[in-house]
């Protein structure tokens, strides 16, 4: 997924080959991650797609099915991966993820601790941010979930950057060997306040913690715990409003000469057209935007805090 490997990195000449992970794009809300295998086929509502047809085509190509339906083949990115990964848990979405990376001040070379791993949506972006020399150590107390996450990082080619451990961070804290080694720590736990004392030990001076909690009561308790040896405690909510863009025909008001006949606007227009008296003035379609009517209204609260500096 990352351009560290110069053979596999994106380029005009980089073509799909056997064993590649591709994102099959049907529509913006319908995508799928597939490992290319010469003998395999993909079947969906657009027909049957032979992987062998894909091999040798550049990434970003449109490929056709036996029935003439088509999909696009995209190179995976952490953002696309977030849209296709299997949800073993509730996951973090792009607005929160990007804000977390920015606020945790993660740059190449950083050591980041995370718990829980969940579906690995955030871990993928963390790995991209610390690459190539940093590392993400992520922990989940659910053995099978940790194993699935490990498989996913293998699949996305991030396993050299992410280590998944099985551990109950709320109960046991982070492993002692990370004491004073972490640049930043991310918590997505039901009772984050239980892990905060351990986080204080793991962080380097001036290191930053982020805790993600869906409920304000969790935030309240975390903040009370944080006040003892953290500073700059700030809680945010970040959401995205998306826009629909459409070409719209707007009929302009034609004047009041026809007012006498009380007809609904559409009828009136028809009538004018029928008459063909040259009054109709079909304005050219205009491209317009409006907010999408449905949106995610809440994901969680992001609480950031910095370890106090011992003077």
């Amino acid at each position: 997924m990352l351009p560290t490997d110069s053979v596999k990195r994106l380029s005009f000449k980089r073509c799909v080959s056997e064993g590649d992970l591709v994102i099959v794009y049907e529509r913006h809300d319908n995508m799928k991650a597939i490992k290319v295998c010469e003998s395999a086929v993909l079947q969906n509502r657009f027909g049957v797609f032979k992987h062998s047809d894909w091999i040798g085509k550049p990434f970003g190509s449109k490929v056709f099915s036996s029935k003439g339906g088509f999909v696009y083949l995209l190179a995976p990115t952490p953002e696309l991966w977030t849209l296709v990964l299997s949800h073993r848990t509730q996951i973090l979405y792009i607005a929160d993820i990007s804000f977390v990376i920015m606020y945790l001040e993660i740059v190449p070379g950083c050591v980041v601790l995370e718990s829980g791993t969940g579906s690995g949506s955030l871990s993928t972006s963390l790995a991209r941010a610390v690459a190539p020399s940093g590392h993400v150590y992520t922990f989940d107390f659910h053995e099978q979930r940790a194993a699935s996450a490990r498989e996913d990082f293998e699949k996305t080619g991030l396993s050299s950057l992410v280590t998944v451990g099985v551990r109950d961070i709320q109960g046991e804290g982070f492993p002692e060997k990370f004491t004073g080694k972490a640049d930043s720590v991310f918590l997505d736990l039901p009772q984050p306040w239980l892990a905060i004392p351990s986080v204080g030990k793991m962080l380097k001076q001036d290191g930053i913690l982020c805790s993600f909690s869906p409920c304000i009561e969790q935030v309240q308790r975390s903040c009370e715990t944080l006040r003892s040896n953290f500073t700059d405690i700030r809680t945010f909510e970040v959401l995205l409003r998306t826009y629909e863009v459409r070409e719209v025909k707007m009929n302009s008001f034609q004047g009041d000469e026809d007012r006498s006949t009380e007809l609904p606007p559409c009828k009136r227009k028809q009538r004018l057209n029928e008459e063909g008296n040259g009054l109709e003035n079909p304005s050219p379609p205009v491209v317009m935007a409006r907010p999408s009517s449905e949106a995610r209204g809440h994901t969680g609260y992001l609480t950031f805090a910095r370890l106090k500096c011992a003077a």
Binding site: Y25, H28, Y72, V219, R234, E237, V238, L239, L240, Y243
Partner: peptide, 13 residues
Amino acid sequence: IGLQIAEPWLREY
């Protein structure tokens, strides 16, 4: 493809 216009919204507590 995958075109989207988004407007982030940020609220502090």
